[in-house]
Design a protein around this nucleic acid. Structure first.
Lengths: 201, 201, 201, 201
DNA sequence: TATGAATGAGGGTTCATTCAT
DNA sequence: AATGAATGAACCCTCATTCAT
């Protein structure tokens, strides 16, 4: 699951990037299971053997794609969280949710469909699902705000994480008719805030 | 996508069933993408050409499997809903949720993983996802209870359906540690009831 | 190393035979390492997938070829040996040697070059080298003729087997100029007889 | 088939040597057909392109290896032969045989397996098989000892050369159980002497 | 009807060798 | 002179599906 060798020269970096880009494009167009290494190489304008100099097998290409999108998202998420960690809850949540929605929209194929459609990836221990990263951020937030009635219990973490991830996921992959983006964001944020404030227990 | 011919004779029925059973078993063991028609036929003790006499292609087998599990679930769901439609909300919801959880647990491979891992199926118009069936039941219920502050608006339907389905789904496929089944059921039901009673708007 | 399935119908037997024949021809023409499954199938006029229905991998094809040539030779050898077992040594040996030479000549590519050039075959435990079969026959003969001064000791077996096999082998693969076939046969037989009679010990 | 350029500098000589050594090691470990140029270069700690600066193709590397082992053996053989050319036959033969056995044992992979397993080498006209070198020495010896009843006829050369080479070869590659080295050497020498003295004609 | 046989199309991967810096 | 990068050509093998008895 490791890359085979790291590109040292500029030319090689370009090759690797074009491979990754090509894979990305093809995934958006055709899904995962139907694309093959040959097709990726062809689209990238790269010899198939070159592809295999940097990626030991097909899976690793997909894995790299996911890793990149997830890490980038986690980075954005954490940056924002750091900045607004001391704001009011009603302000924080919508901002976070909006950022996540945007990121999911930009990388829906990779982040949302890939782990589902290629279950082997999930089994690859090195893959840390983006959802877990979101969960970590939520947990961190809760720990720094002991005033919430909702604590870091397994149950609440489960529901919270799911509340966030599943609604975003579904809004992107299976968008409901007649629900505008802002309407969705507002409502979801409100539900989350209500949950955090413990309107249920 | 239609079955090729309906089995009129007893023997043919048995053949079809053995194919479906074999597919079911293999799916549980190895997932979807890795199982092939030859393997299914072999496991079923049926000649590969016979298999193609009843199923025009690989997809149809999977489709039949899904259809059966979904319809059976919908049937159970509706039966229960009819019986308790006039009970109190706090009684109705946990019963429904429990039934759904049980059904999902029994058919997790088919109902939860298959549509995700085999995206072509989702595109097949004839497949009605079980989630939609759940949505319909919810909608029906809402229509018969105009006293709820939550109405049958697209937004509420979206959140409600998702609340139910995603939590059940995730509880089955990615069970949280340290959250007991009954704890989960209770909490989920409570959240749903709260949502229905409009604790958020 | 087992054949994958046995041909039951006449058609299938023909397919298998044509594969084996094609492989045989190609081996004579080009050697072993350079021929591939695709080439064999093409030459045989058979689809590559059909080939793999009867042979699980490339090696097995070569193996089958060897097995057939070796078994056929062993059979001829034993038939002859049974017939003349009670004749005089000076009569027996030339007949045996001539038979072996003829068999080697007919199957030189398979029997003489294959085991050398494809060392994996030798490691395949199921392959019984033809040379061992010859050795067995020699041993059997010695046991039935206790009057010889040469006994069935490891050392004598080693030399005898080698005397027979290596000279025949080399005569076929690397024929000496100016040594006629009959001259070779006569001389080799004479040496063997001398060795059997113990002109050395 | 020529080396591409002769190494003039010290560093280049070292590079060539490390390539040859690496190839040698790999051959002992894995055989011939399975080792590739990339592997050799990696093991030698040399860039693959550098390798191709000294060897125009894969074959040449193997060829160089053979050439070195064969020439070294021929040299040892001739040195010894010169020294003892006037000794008694019964003394000469065992010494020669022992030297050859030792040399074969030390270079069995190269001298015994390589020409067999890589038939292209044999076809390369520049390769003079070690066996031919042995044959030459035998012939030379016979010419200098006209008192032997065995003359330098094609037939006798064929048998003699084969007697020596094949027994040594087989003893090394396929050692018989329960035949000690010294027993083998003694017996083989005795047979050779007997043959030279014409105990058969 | 049921079964053995056949097949087209592709899919992942490797290797010897050459190019460009 | 030495190295990282690139590549063309294969090769082994599998699978969904159809044919023929």
């Amino acid at each position: 699951m490791e890359r085979r060798k790291l590109p040292r020269q500029q030319r090689a970096k370009a090759t690797v990037d074009s491979i990754l880009d090509a894979a990305n494009d093809l995934i958006r167009e055709k899904g995962f299971s139907s694309i093959g290494t040959g097709e990726i190489a062809a689209r990238a304008g790269v010899n198939i053997a070159s592809l295999y100099q940097y990626f030991p097998n097909r899976e690793t290409i997909l894995f790299s794609l996911y890793e990149e999108a997830a890490n980038q998202g986690a980075h954005k998420l954490n940056s924002l969280a750091m900045k607004i960690v001391h704001d009011e809850l009603e302000t924080v949540v919508p901002k976070i949710i909006k950022l996540l929605l945007t990121h999911y929209e930009e990388h829906s194929a990779i982040l949302l469909r890939m782990l589902h459609e290629v279950p082997e990836l999930r089994r690859a221990t090195r893959v840390v699902p983006f959802e877990k990263m979101i969960g970590s951020t939520i947990r961190l937030y809760l720990q720094q705000h002991p005033e919430f009635r909702i604590k870091d219990t397994p149950r609440h973490m489960f529901f919270l994480e799911n509340l966030v991830v599943s609604n975003l996921t579904r809004y992107v992959t299976d968008p409901p008719p007649n629900v505008s983006r802002s309407e969705f964001l507002t409502h979801l944020s409100r539900v989350i805030v209500a949950y955090l404030k413990g309107s249920f227990s």
